[in-house]
Amino acid sequence: MSYPPPPPNDPYGNQVPPPPPYGGAPYGGAGAYGAPAVNYANWGQRVGAYLIDAIIVAPFSILASVLGQGTDENGLPTVNAFYWIFLLLAIGVQGYNRWFQAGKTGQSWGKKALGLTLVDANSGQPIGAGKAFLRDLAHFIDAIICYIGFLFPLWDAKRQTLADKIVSTVVTR
């Protein structure tokens, strides 16, 4: 027994499924079979995490400029030992937070506060301290074109900055 073909305007026959909504992966929101869809962090969340990381080292930078800078008898700017001590402390805290901790666990303090994770784009694993350091160096490329590279997560499919693309990382939530 065979059924006649559906009429051309049959609402249940021969219809192309509509494209998925924004942010929704096809096939019910999942990636490949058994693999969860990747939920990339949006630009606002990434900026928030970065600001938290920056605020953490801000006191050291302020102390370095307040206690460590002065002027000599000719009115020329000078720096004393406090400047270098607080500068090194700022670099140390920044290095521990953004390179060691973010590289080892995927989360700097800022990312942890906002529930974000920095991972390798291919393996999904934390990237290690060395690659986290290289990623921060690669942010130079984001900055050099009037800081436009930092805006790339607004339109990029994987929400990556240029630095993320260079070192092959993504930030997920």
Partner: peptide, 19 residues
Amino acid sequence: GLPCPLRTMTDVPCPACGL
């Protein structure tokens, strides 16, 4: 200020200069 790093370093402007 918010100078363009590329222009500051090389005197060459970038596409976003002047924004």
